[in-house]
Structure formats: structure tokens, C-alpha cells
């Protein structure tokens, strides 16, 4: 997994609340293998109308936000399903950080596993950052994970992230390797647990 420490990049505003995982990646694309890349269908039904034409008003369709690596979203971004492919779509498109007042729990957990930072700010700060980058799209923002700050123009905003996710992003930890180092503890746990919960393993069919 790619580490995340500091990022300076263009930020695209998408301030609607409740952009759920179906909006991020409609279910019909869930069959796509990861190798295919899911960036091309990110927000597909928001970006492209039923007539197959791109909606020129949708921020991602506007040339000034091409190449943005930060997304500034509304409350409850990524609520809904557990589809990790929603994170793949955001990441494959090129985003490395989503700023929003709150995130769906599973989305946020999936994001960390893929090196995508979910930075939680207050409603007011999210609106202010969205307004600033809307007013001046060429303005870069700087996201510093160690400091937990977002610099935008002459303003610096703090953001929240739980220490577990922060650690993982900063270190680019591989969960599986880490877990393997606890193999003995897992074995010990299972011995004790079998005594405590003899009914927990699978019974007869």
C-alpha cells in the first residue's frame, strides 16, 4: 500500500451531502476486475446523463478540476454498501484525499487499506474549503497527515482521523504481514477460547 504523509494538489468541490457508494460507483460496474481501473466510471450516473452526454455542470467534467487529487465533499460521504470498488474508483481516478464532515464507516475503513486519506472536518470548514476552491480552482491545497492540517490559501484547518488509520496511512503497513507476527498469540487465544466457547466452532451438519 502507498504511504500517505503530505500532499499538495488541486481540490475539486462536490459539496452535496450523502454521496453514497451507489453514487460513487453504480452497482453495474462491480463486476469489473481491479486491473481494468475503475476511475473512468467514478460518479458515472452523476457525471453522465441518461442520454450518454456528460453533464457540463458536474465539477469533475470541468477542465479546471482535471488532475485534482483532493475531493471536498459533503456530510456522510461514502455511506451505504461495503463495496471497496467505490474506493478503487475514487483512487483510480486520481484522488488521494477526500475532505468531508463525515464518512460512511466501511468506506473510511476501505479507504485506509488503499492509501486514500479521509479527512474529517467540521461542516463549516468543509463549506469554506469548498467555497475557496470554487472561487479559485487553480489554488492548491496542502494536506499534512502527521500534523492533521489542511492549508488552503492563508487558512489552516485541522482535521480528524482516528489514530489507527493515521498510523496505517503514515506507515503504509501491510495488515497481513503484521498479523502473521501475532501467529503465536492467535494460537494461544484459540486454545483458551475453545474451552470458554466449545459451541462456537462448527457443529454437525
Amino acid at each position: 500500500m502507498e504511504k500517505f504523509d503530505r500532499l499538495t494538489a488541486r481540490a475539486c468541490p462536490l459539496p452535496q451531502p450523502n454521496i453514497n457508494t451507489d453514487a460513487i460507483l453504480p452497482a453495474r460496474f462491480l463486476k469489473w476486475p481491479r486491473e481494468k481501473g475503475l476511475g473512468s466510471v467514478l460518479f458515472q450516473d452523476l457525471r453522465v446523463g441518461a442520454d450518454g452526454k456528460e453533464d457540463p455542470a458536474f465539477p469533475l467534467n470541468q477542465p479546471m478540476w482535471h488532475g485534482a487529487k483532493v475531493l471536498v465533499a459533503g456530510r456522510n460521504f461514502g455511506g451505504g454498501s461495503s463495496r471497496e470498488a467505490a474506493v478503487y474508483a475514487v483512487y483510480d481516478y486520481g484522488f488521494r484525499c477526500v475532505i468531508a464532515p463525515s464518512f460512511g464507516d466501511i468506506f473510511a475503513q476501505n479507504a485506509v487499506k488503499n492509501g486514500l486519506l479521509t479527512a474529517a472536518v467540521s461542516d463549516a470548514d468543509a463549506s469554506e474549503i469548498a467555497a475557496a476552491v470554487t472561487a479559485d480552482p487553480a489554488r492548491d491545497v496542502t494536506v499534512d497527515l502527521a500534523q492533521q492540517t489542511i492549508s488552503c490559501g492563508n487558512r489552516v484547518y485541522g482535521f480528524a482521523i482516528d489514530p489507527v488509520s493515521k498510523n496505517q496511512l503514515l506507515n503504509g503497513w501491510d495488515d497481513v504481514d503484521l498479523t502473521e507476527s501475532y501467529r503465536q498469540q492467535i494460537e494461544d487465544y484459540r486454545k483458551v477460547d475453545l474451552q470458554a466457547r466449545p459451541w462456537a466452532p462448527i457443529g454437525r451438519r
Binding site: 454498501s81 471497496e84 487499506k113 482516528d162 489507527v164 495488515d175 497481513v176 503484521l178 498479523t179 492467535i186
Partner: peptide
């Protein structure tokens, strides 16, 4: 609880999961 693909892979390989 529901989990994403990376966690599915982790559980498949280790029968455990890191959680806060």
C-alpha cells in the same frame, strides 16, 4: 458487520481482523 475486499482477503488468510 460488513467489510470491504481488503478485509475479506485478510480474514480469508488469517481468520482475524484488525478493528478499532
Amino acid at each position: 458487520f460488513g467489510i470491504g475486499a481488503s478485509e475479506v482477503a485478510h480474514v480469508l488468510m488469517t481468520q482475524t481482523l484488525w478493528q478499532k
